[in-house]
């Protein structure tokens, strides 16, 4: 019975199926909202589903220069680590595998999809992929510093007895007792920093230096086609959900209503709002950043925001 339940967790909710559907929906909403902000009609909200299914039906070509095993395994690796992450991120009170969620695990797991893109791109043997992964690399280094600081800030703030915590369970417990993190003014800079980290982590538009299709032919994905590309697109969509859910867990968590369905709906609402704020809006209003500008942006402005929060929290606010 426990095995069946675990399988249900892994495959249906909150695992693979749930986050795939929600992720693709979020991606669709993002595209629609961006289109509307640019005065366009935009694709239907289910467009990412069409894209995904279409890619499943396409031929998958593996080029000569690619090392076959890694080329196929890389997107799957990214997908698996994302699904695993989905199991660890709490939906208010509910986590599929409670007690195992941990900020540092999340931090490392978050690098795996990016690493999967890099490894897959490297395995494809294309020079465009080479340029792409070098950009992806700089992007990782750029956004990882503020992300680390934000997570540590939350880890300090949520500890009840003056210590620290890396546990999501405790973070949720803290928020249930003292109100969500966003209601503490000292956490607001960190929340803003997190909002700015999300698009870059997802690889959404102004920060998609790695997959710049107009400059370097989609970068690391240049040689991917068919279902493998579909899995990458799915990864991208799931990442959107994971990161927005992470934001919800870190800054807008709490006890929830106690009813799972309501909680899930509330989470979806938060995810949608965060998606619109942090991904659609920057996408609609700005052009792609240069890679060195992006680095500068994250290591100065965003990091400073995060550090302000960290210092405030350490000073006891």
């Amino acid at each position: 019975m426990q095995i069946l339940l675990d399988l249900f967790y892994v495959l249906i909710f909150p695992g693979f199926l749930f986050c795939a559907v929600v992720g693709l929906l979020l991606a669709g909403i993002d595209r629609k909202i961006v289109a509307r902000m640019q005065k366009r009609m935009g694709p239907p909200i289910v467009q990412p589903f069409y894209d995904f299914f279409k890619l499943l039906g396409k031929e998958t070509i593996i080029p000569h220069a690619a090392s076959r095993g890694v080329f196929i395994a890389a997107p799957l690796l990214g997908l698996v680590s994302l699904v695993v992450m989905a199991l660890f991120i709490p939906v208010f009170g509910f986590t599929a595998f409670s007690g195992v969620a941990d900020l540092i695990v999340i931090l490392y797991l978050l690098t795996i999809p990016a690493a999967a893109i890099i490894v897959g791109g490297a395995a494809s043997g294309s020079p465009y992929a080479g340029v792409g992964i070098s950009r992806e690399m700089v992007a990782i280094v750029a956004y990882e510093l503020p992300l680390i600081i934000v997570l540590l800030t939350v880890g300090k703030k949520a500890a009840l007895d003056g210590g620290i915590t890396f546990s999501f369970t405790e973070i949720q417990a803290y928020q249930a007792e003292f109100g969500s993190m966003l209601s503490h003014w000292s956490m607001i800079p960190a929340a803003v920093a997190m909002l700015l980290v999300i698009p870059s982590e997802v690889g959404s538009h102004p920060f998609d230096v790695a997959e710049a299709e107009t400059e370097i032919c989609e970068g690391p994905l240049v040689e991917y086609s068919g279902s493998l590309l579909g899995i990458y697109k799915l990864n991208h969509a799931i990442k959107m959900f994971i990161l927005t859910a992470l934001f919800a867990a870190l800054f807008l968590g709490g006890a929830g209503s106690g009813i799972l369905i309501v909680d899930v709906l509330l989470l979806l609402l938060i995810c949608t709002v965060v998606t619109i704020l942090s991904m659609s809006l920057p996408h609609a209003i700005s052009a792609r950043l240069k890679v060195e500008k992006m680095f500068k942006f994250y290591w100065t402005l965003v990091t400073v925001l995060a550090v302000i929060s960290l210092v405030l929290v350490w000073m006891g606010f």
């Binding site: 593996i62 196929i72 068919g226 279902s227």
Partner: peptide
């Protein structure tokens, strides 16, 4: 239902 994975 899916496209074939082609060997080079």
């Amino acid at each position: 239902s899916r496209g074939p994975v082609r060997r080079p």
